[in-house]
Write a protein that binds this DNA or RNA. Structure first.
Length: 423
DNA sequence: TCTGGGGTCCTAGGACCC
DNA sequence: TCTGGGGTCCTAGGACCC
């Protein structure tokens, strides 16, 4: 039987910062979300200080500084680049690889390797650390969900690798696994289960399927089957294209002027359109949303509008026009706005429109050529080498990233300079 | 002063069709 | 006045993940 290896980078964003600043080892380190809003990655030392995931930065700032902690704005170009280096190493193993997120991947090995899974796990861990500087944990078992459980244990072990296969071993681990730690059981489902006196994965596995399906729906039942050792979560490796594309940001200060929101929306629509063309898709529905700050006591307003286009397109200017039309429908004077965003749904392949009589084909059109030229210039010379005037120049509303490190690996101008004291 | 962003899947219910 | 049954598609909302 084939087996599943889950490789998960430890405190990934923090580890990325540490690769270029080794002096951060053994110290509390956190990485903040966009706008330096809240904590989204913590080192072990920061976790030990009691800083929870998602804590607003202003609530833990003092605690961190008091304990010699370091704080960083998130630097996605750095994390994205290190992630692809980790994945490249993983893809050298004789397994089917499924990149699940920026910091984790499933490797499905054929049965012929089952006599050496522990040495494989150790080898993966050592190779990734040696070649990228990123520490990873490795969980190995029969199914993806069980590999997740194993990985959870590996994270807290010395060796960083954990595997379990025999029925007896699996049962003894599941008896100690709280339901809220199961992959696929979130806060709400865990509460529901606890109300029914189900506290551990082992209890959950013993329940009748009909009961589970009723309480946790189809996906919950799949999870239970996986815990019982039956693989039923399909690989998403084949699916490359996204079904929806979204870009949104919070403003760094409360925005009231419609012109500022136009600029922001134009910027986000441009980003969305780039993502759309990257996967060779067109969209036919553009949704726009706008909201005030829900944490404030000021008057609240939030709205959403979708615009159906007459034909599928990936041309930025048409999409910006649609976004603006959406904004015109939902904007109301007199509110302090916090966030806006743009969502594309009803995506289709660019090539699919070639033979349709009723609308102009985007693929092989003038606008397609123009977009290709624009994308390649921006890729070669950097983002915003060419951009639409509607996106604005000053962009006062744009997000706060005051604690940003350099893009050490993706920009010639920001290469790391090594100081003697850091070695 | 300061509270992120981007996804997927499933279900129930309504609209609509024959 | 009486008014079926079966099917599809779409959407909003809720759950989950990282």
């Amino acid at each position: 039987m084939s087996f599943v290896v889950l490789v998960d980078c430890n405190n990934f964003y923090v580890s990325c910062e540490r690769v270029f600043k080794p002096c951060l080892e053994q110290r509390p380190v956190v990485v903040l979300s966009n706008n330096d809003g809240c904590v989204i990655a913590r080192s072990k030392e920061a976790k030990e200080l009691g800083i929870e995931m998602g804590t607003p930065f202003f609530k833990c700032r003092e605690l961190l500084l008091h304990n010699g902690g370091s704080i960083f704005s998130s630097n996605y170009s750095l994390y994205g680049d290190l992630s692809s280096r980790v994945m490249q190493i993983l893809s050298l193993y004789p397994a089917e690889i499924e990149i699940y997120s920026i910091d984790e991947a499933f490797l499905v090995f054929p049965e012929s390797y089952s006599d050496r899974y522990i040495s494989l796990g150790r080898d993966i861990r050592e190779s990734v650390k040696k070649m990228t500087g990123i520490p990873v944990s490795v969980g190995i078992s029969k199914t993806r969900t069980l590999a997740k459980v194993a990985n959870h244990i590996a994270k807290h072990s010395q060796s960083g690798v954990y595997s379990f296969f025999t029925e007896q071993h699996i049962q003894s681990v599941l008896k100690k696994t709280p339901v809220e730690n199961i992959w696929g059981i979130g806060y709400k489902y865990a509460k529901k289960l606890q109300q029914n006196n189900i506290y551990h994965a082992h209890d959950l596995c013993g329940l009748p399927d009909t009961w589970i399906r009723k309480l946790l729906t189809k996906k919950g039942l799949q999870t239970v089957w996986e815990l019982r050792g039956v693989s039923c979560i399909e690989s998403t490796a084949i699916r490359i294209e996204k079904k929806a594309i979204n870009t949104s940001r919070s403003f760094s200060y409360p925005v009231t002027k419609k012109t500022d929101i136009y600029e922001a929306l134009s910027t986000f629509t441009t980003l969305n359109a780039e993502k759309l063309r990257k996967q060779n898709s067109c969209t036919q529905i553009v949704c726009v949303y706008l909201s005030t700050n829900r944490f404030k006591e000021t008057p609240q307003y939030s709205s959403f509008h979708s615009i159906a286009l007459p034909f599928p397109t990936a041309e930025t200017s048409l999409l910006i026009k649609a976004s603006f039309e959406g904004l015109d429908r939902i904007y109301r004077e007199g509110y302090l706005y916090k966030k806006t965003g743009c969502l594309f749904v009803a995506l289709s392949s660019q090539k699919a429109s070639i033979n349709n009589l009723f609308y102009p084909s985007y693929y092989d059109s003038f606008s397609n050529n123009m977009m290709v030229a624009m994308d390649s210039l921006n890729e070669k010379y950097g983002r915003d080498t060419l951009y639409y005037a509607s996106s604005g120049i000053s962009r006062f509303w744009s997000m706060k990233r005051e604690l940003l490190t350099s893009a050490y690996t993706t920009s010639w101008k920001q290469l790391k300079e090594v100081e003697y004291s850091e070695i």
